[in-house]
C-alpha cells in the first residue's frame, strides 16, 4: 500500500514540477513579446502584423467585451498585460486604484497628431499623464431603409408604434439611459434622481413597448437577418454583420440630440515588463498611415488623429461633427446605484 502511495506522490510531484516549468516557459523567451488586452475587434490584424514585422517582436492579443470584464480580470491579478484600452470612466478608476504606469509623452513623436479638441475632453486624466486617446465614438441608430421609408434622425424613432417589435436597443444601462437623458435634454452623467426617474419612465412607457428586446450580444445579427429594422448600437458591429452588397440599404446615424459617447484610451499597466515596447506600440497606432488603416478597416471617422483624416480611403459611417451633441460617459461613483435601480425596473418588468 505504501508503495502505491509513494508512486502516486512521485507521479503527482512530477506533474506539478512539469506544470511549473511549462508555465514559466510561457513568460520568458528571448524575442520580446508585447501583451495586449483589447476590446473584441478593435485593432485590425493587419496593423498588429505590421507592428510585429517593423519591430521584430511578437504580439499576444487577448480580448474583452466590456470595461467591467477587463477591470475585473486585471483586478483579480495574475495577468501580465502591457497595454489595455479602457474607456474614460475606467481610466479615472484605474488611476485611483493605482493600476497604471505614467506615460513619457516626450517619447511619443506622434502625440502631436491627436486632435486638441479630443485632448480637451480627457478630464478623466488631465494632461494625459497616464492615457493616450485611441478612439472617440458613439453608439447610434442603424435603419434598414428598404423597410422604413421615412424617419427622423432622433431618438424619438423608438416611440414609433408602427415599428413595434421591429426595433432593438442595447442591453446596456448607461447607453440606453444616456439616450433617454439626452433626449430629455439632460446630461448623460446626471445624478439628479428626478431626471433619472424621468428617463426611466420615458423608456418604460414610450420606448420599451415598441422594442423587440434589449440585446448587446446578437443585435447586429438580428439586424443583418432582417429580424429588426431599427437597431441602436455600434456601427462597427452592424457593418461587420451586414453583407457588403447590402450596405447601401443601411443608414447609420447619431441622433441629433446626441447621446453618450466614449473615448477609449491606451494605457500601460503597472508591472509591465515591456514599457518601451508598449510606448512604441502607442506611437505606432498614432502614426497617420496606421491610424487611417485602422479607421478604414472599421468604417470609423478619424476622430482622434488629424493627419489620418486626409489619408483615409474608405467611407465612414458617421462624421466627427455628428458627435458634437454627444457627451462622454463619466464615472458617477456611488450614484451608479440610482441608475441600477432604474435599469432594474426596465429589464425586469413585463
Amino acid at each position: 500500500m505504501d508503495k502505491l502511495r509513494k508512486v502516486i506522490l512521485d507521479v503527482s510531484g512530477f506533474l506539478l514540477v512539469s506544470l511549473v516549468l511549462l508555465l514559466s516557459g510561457c513568460g520568458g523567451g528571448q524575442s520580446k513579446t508585447l501583451y495586449i488586452f483589447n476590446w473584441t475587434y478593435y485593432t485590425p490584424d493587419s496593423v498588429i502584423q505590421k507592428f510585429e514585422k517593423e519591430y521584430g517582436v511578437k504580439v499576444v492579443y487577448d480580448t474583452f467585451a466590456s470595461n467591467e470584464e477587463m477591470f475585473a480580470k486585471l483586478k483579480a491579478g495574475g495577468a501580465n498585460y502591457d497595454i489595455t484600452f479602457p474607456s474614460g470612466d475606467y481610466v479615472s478608476i484605474m488611476i485611483k486604484e493605482n493600476m497604471l504606469e505614467k506615460i513619457d509623452k516626450s517619447k511619443l513623436k506622434n502625440f502631436a497628431n491627436i486632435d486638441p479638441k479630443v485632448l480637451e475632453q480627457c478630464d478623466f486624466d488631465p494632461g494625459n499623464q497616464y492615457s493616450i486617446p485611441y478612439y472617440l465614438g458613439a453608439a447610434g441608430v442603424a435603419v434598414n431603409k428598404t423597410k422604413v421609408a421615412s424617419y427622423e434622425k432622433s431618438w424619438s424613432i423608438f416611440a414609433r408604434k408602427d415599428l413595434a417589435n421591429r426595433m432593438i436597443m442595447l442591453d446596456d444601462m448607461r447607453e440606453v439611459m444616456g439616450d433617454a437623458l439626452k433626449y430629455l435634454g439632460y446630461s448623460v452623467n446626471t445624478v439628479d434622481q428626478k431626471q433619472i426617474d424621468e428617463a426611466r419612465d420615458l423608456i418604460n412607457k414610450v420606448w420599451k413597448p415598441n422594442l423587440l428586446k434589449f440585446d448587446a450580444e446578437a443585435f447586429a445579427k438580428s439586424f443583418a437577418a432582417g429580424e429588426v429594422w431599427v437597431a441602436q448600437g455600434y456601427a462597427e458591429s452592424i457593418f461587420a454583420e451586414v453583407d457588403k452588397a447590402n450596405w447601401n440599404t443601411v443608414d447609420f446615424f447619431i441622433p441629433k440630440e446626441g447621446g453618450p459617447s466614449y473615448l477609449d484610451s491606451m494605457v500601460i499597466l503597472k508591472g509591465s515588463k515591456n514599457k518601451d515596447l508598449a510606448l512604441k506600440f502607442i506611437d505606432f497606432i498614432q502614426r497617420p498611415d496606421i491610424y487611417a488603416e485602422f479607421c478604414d478597416y472599421f468604417g470609423f471617422p478619424s476622430t482622434v488623429n488629424v493627419p489620418a483624416r486626409a489619408l483615409k480611403k474608405g467611407e465612414s459611417w458617421y462624421r466627427p461633427e455628428d458627435l458634437l451633441n454627444c457627451e462622454l460617459k463619466k464615472d458617477v461613483g456611488a450614484d451608479l446605484e440610482k441608475y441600477n435601480a432604474a435599469w432594474q425596473t426596465i429589464r425586469v418588468g413585463k
Binding site: S66, E69, M173, N340
Partner: peptide, 9 residues
C-alpha cells in the same frame, strides 16, 4: 450575470 458584470454588485 448582470449584477456581476454590469452593475458591479
Amino acid at each position: 450575470a448582470d449584477q456581476l458584470t454590469k452593475t458591479r454588485n
